[in-house]
């Protein structure tokens, strides 16, 4: 951050001091103050308050009514709420599916498109399309294919009375949701990865090919290691997205818990009639689960600044 000038040190300090007139100081104060106040007041303060509230009983009407609960809310969740474990199971499936299937597919897709295979521009557009849609719209669109008198049941030739209930039947529902979520996630990862691949030196790849490396070897030994920063970001995004999932499941199931996931459980316990500090405890659990990816992300992005 030091200014490289030939001027003697004393003079430089004097000059720098002159820059900050009283008016400048006030301007700077406002420039930093207003955004920081807003951010702290509406993000950090509430986040810390929620952590505190998770150790209390409160119906949420008068502040005087708050009573200390210790770990009771957490005990309640861990030992007396079987649906919590169902949600944990579903979120785990979600993470594993994204991690081992959707994300690698997005990466491979990006790699092939980056190689400019025939039709790559068109393909890129096709896979990109779902990324701009909201998850709410995504839910409605897929409902069109999967409802009892929808396309898939029609294709299977099943009349409505014998139709498969893709969202209701526990044998299918989590996988159907995984496919829907991947529909958007694969395109998202593809876009992120493509941007990273564009930055990888083409000569590296050329050299590998000339040395007789196969396509797969080139990718695994040359491209993939060169993409380390992007790989980390992609993994972090994959985990955070899987933990936060809410919109699409909510639009299909509402609060019914037809497919319990953590995002919906938190929602059911913090919003509307059922609000209690058990919801705060749920939110804290969700936060603790995402703390590792958050820190990994920050480390990756700030490694140049903090040495």
């Amino acid at each position: 951050m030091s200014v490289e000038t030939a001027a003697p040190r004393g003079e430089q300090v004097a000059r720098r001091r002159r820059f900050f007139t009283r008016q400048d100081k006030i301007t700077l104060g406002f420039f930093i103050g207003i955004p920081t106040f807003l951010h702290v007041a509406l993000v950090w303060f509430p986040a810390i308050a929620t952590i505190g509230l998770s150790f209390t009983y409160w119906t949420g009407i008068k502040i005087e009514d708050i009573t200390w609960a210790g770990l009771a809310n957490y005990e309640n969740i861990f030992f007396n709420t079987p649906i919590f474990w169902d949600a944990v199971r579903n979120n785990t499936i979600w993470i594993l599916w994204f991690f081992f299937i959707a994300t690698p597919l997005g990466v491979l897709l990006a790699y092939q498109i980056d190689r400019e295979i025939r039709g790559h521009k068109l393909y890129q557009s096709a896979y990109f399309l779902p990324v701009v849609l909201s998850l709410a719209v995504t839910g409605i669109i897929w409902n069109f294919l999967l409802r009892p008198d929808g396309f898939v049941n029609g294709l299977l030739g099943l009349p409505i009375s014998e139709a498969i209930s893709f969202f209701g039947d526990e044998r299918y529902n989590i996988w159907v949701i995984m496919i829907m979520a991947s529909w958007r996630h694969i395109g998202y990862i593809m876009l992120l990865y493509l941007a990273g691949l564009k930055a990888v030196d083409g000569a590296l790849r050329e050299a590998a090919t000339i040395d007789g490396a196969t396509e797969w070897q080139t990718f695994r030994k040359v491209v993939f290691p060169a993409m380390k920063p992007v790989n980390i970001i992609v993994i972090v995004i994959t985990i955070i997205e899987s933990l936060r999932a809410f919109d699409m499941v909510y639009i299909i199931y509402g609060s019914s818990g037809g497919l319990p996931i953590l995002g919906v459980l938190v929602f059911n316990n913090i919003a509307g009639e059922g609000a209690s500090m058990k919801g705060a405890a749920y939110a804290v659990i969700l936060f603790l689960l995402s703390i590792v990816p958050i820190i990994t992300y920050l480390q990756q992005q700030f490694k140049d600044d903090v040495r």
Binding site: P46, F267, I270, G279, Y282, A283, F287, S290, I294, L298
Partner: peptide, 11 residues
């Protein structure tokens, strides 16, 4: 990066 749900009740 904080989950929105963590922030909601106090807001």
């Amino acid at each position: 990066l904080l989950p929105p749900q963590l922030v909601f009740i106090p807001v």
